[in-house]
Design a protein around this nucleic acid. Structure first.
Lengths: 215, 215
DNA sequence: GAGTTAAGTGACCCCTGGTCATTCGTCAAG
DNA sequence: CTTGACGAATGACCAGGGGTCACTTAACTC
């Protein structure tokens, strides 16, 4: 007697969620490469083949997960940006962005994998849907940024978001390293290579904003 | 009759170079995942097993390649920073850094893979040697940066280098995308997601420096 | 020329993503 | 309640790529 079969659309959606949750839990404990599709299946008490009924490839599974996390993060950030009103200081804004990423390690780790791994083995359609969603959320963020930082032009706002994205992925990779690298960086003189994600991101965004303001 | 055997250390070093060159050529044409160790072997007219006499894992091979490219790039950059004298403008410095990366796509692509892929399946010793080298080159760059930009503190210089590193890897990933993503980004309204590596890096570094100067 | 060393070889192993013929749970019609 | 049909779930199987190792043989020494 296997698991109940998902025949209605809502049941299928629920099963899809279970798979995403399993993938997430496994990814949080290890790394993309170490998560096996067989593990994802086992965690949901399904057969491996079943996982592939819901996601055509491993990359598609994780891109779908990233899609969810990204949507959630943008909603959170945009909510906080819309919250207060009037102009903000560069530092206040930088802190808000950095704070919105606290506890979102999974999101930034996946984001860092997006171009190099996740979009490698995925359909054009899935990529398009994903990027379409990013575009919408980004647009909303750009508008909010201009409200909070009057010195920003529309073009500035777009560029700023791209630069923050680059910093997020770059810093996450530097902060969230393989065990081997972690061991090496423990050495005292390696301090200049150690990265505190939140602190560095806050500093970098603050500096970027001050640079735009000073122009 | 196989290939001549490398018995002297210099012959082994030459063979090692051949393997690195082959790996580089294949990587430039495709991607890390698409380069097969069997291809590297074929390109050097050696057997697959032989490649593993020189590099214990695929990741070790590419980390060694990155090691070379990184050393070469830092030498080039430091040379240019040492070239002129007196103080530079923020923009001049940003342009110098960005220009030093022109034609170094292979280097930045590998750099972007460093933490997420290359350091995953490599010995502590190789990682340590690699990071030790980074540390030395970074130190030299920090000193030169302070000479060119009098408003930088020593701490600023270190942080700036980390932020530029993050921007380099982040922007490279955004600019250098999978064919599927490239197709999607061709759509006109996707413009805000398209990234010109050199232009964006120049802009970001300029802004960062202005921000530090304005403080 | 014989002996010794170790570079080179490639058949083989193993693991993991992905497939598909088959099984069987679920539901609607009679 | 029984039956037929649909299609969700299964897991044995396949493909192919990283990595191994017993064996071969080039190259050097005496």
């Amino acid at each position: 007697m296997g698991p109940s079969r998902a025949r209605r659309d809502e049941d299928k959606e629920a099963r899809r969620r279970e798979l995403l949750d399993a993938a997430r839990a496994l990814f949080e404990a290890t790394s993309f490469a170490e998560v096996k599709m067989a593990d994802v299946a086992a965690r949901t008490r399904l057969a491996k083949g079943t996982v592939f009924l819901y996601f055509p490839t491993k990359e598609a599974l994780f891109l779908a997960l990233l899609d969810d996390l990204l949507t959630a993060w943008f909603a959170k950030l945009n909510g906080q940006l819309a919250g207060g009103d009037g102009a903000w200081t560069a530092e206040a804004l930088a802190r808000t962005v950095a704070a919105s990423l606290e506890g979102e390690e999974t999101f930034t780790r996946l984001l860092a994998l997006m171009q190099t791994v996740l979009e490698q083995n995925v359909t054009v359609e899935q990529t398009r849907r994903f990027k379409e969603r990013v575009l919408v959320a980004m647009g909303a963020t750009a508008v909010l940024l201009q409200q909070r930082l009057p010195f920003l032009t529309a073009e500035d706002a777009g560029q700023l978001i791209r630069h923050v994205h680059a910093l997020m992925t770059g810093l996450r990779q530097m902060a969230d390293i393989a065990p081997v690298a972690r061991e090496v960086l423990t050495l005292p003189h390696m301090a200049p290579l150690r990265v505190d994600f939140t602190a560095e991101l806050t500093a970098a965004i603050t500096t970027l904003l001050r640079g735009l303001q000073a122009r």
